[in-house]
Amino acid sequence: MALETKVYQKENNLRIGRLVRESLTDMYASRFLARQLAVRDISAQYRQSYLGIVWAFITPLTTAVVWIFLNKSGTIQLTDTGIPYPVFAFSGTLLWSILTESINSPRTSTNAAQGILTKINFPKEALIISGIYKLLFNSAIKVVLLIGFIFLFGVGYHHTLWLFPLALFGAILLGTTIGLFLTPIGMLYNDVGKIIGFGLQFVMYITPVVYAMPKEGLMKVLMELNPFTPVILTARDLAVGFTPQYLTYYFIVLAACVPLLFLGLVFYRISIPIIVERLSA
């Protein structure tokens, strides 16, 4: 039986193709680990909590409720969204929460594993996958709630609803890609995590999350440039049965994400030993 040979040295092999292949091989090899880590974190989370699943959707729900109140009470005058406002607001905040969670997920998963990263050599890609599993689990709960809203407020069933999970997949892809590039630096400096949290609050206001895109003006320009816009709009349009308006931009964003995702994986893979060295306890 030939033994697998590993070589550790300073020089990195920079052949992207090979690195991507290694990354994917490790990802496949560690599928059980990824699942186990996700199961561990999810069950630990719920075992030590009475409200349990509520925490998964409380943030988008309260944000939506705040905006529904602002709108209903007349505090803020919003343009017509074409669908009942609660459905519009909740679908927006829900998609937005999935986006932000997927941006944060690689960083938080890696950070949480600091203790084992400095002690045990295991395929680090498992951390990212386990993060995605946890994200899917939380998203699934929210989606069920959203579907409840859709029927409750009389939007009703459309065939395109079945495409909604695919659109969610787009949101997770975009978020994870961004997250992967931020993770190595975010592991070194806490500032990164703070800036992400802080910055995303502002980005939300130039994304059609709780209000529709205006017909003209600076806001329209900003929203149309914002790569989150097509992701949110397409997913929402599919859920409520509209024809997606920004489908081309949506596919451009996704097409750009795929090579960037692989690049992000390679960057992550190269960076981890450098990060571990700076963390080593």
Binding site: L3, E4, K6, Q9, K10, A44, K119, P273
Partner: peptide, 30 residues
């Protein structure tokens, strides 16, 4: 293989096991 060397080279053949920390990944409440 947790950190990379700054000079020199390591060549290891076969499956590597490490007893550096026991019970890695334990979740206290499980």
């Amino acid at each position: 293989g947790l950190i990379n060397p700054d000079a020199g080279k390591i060549t290891i053949k076969g499956r590597v096991g490490a007893l550096i920390e026991l019970g890695a990944g334990f979740s206290p409440i499980l």
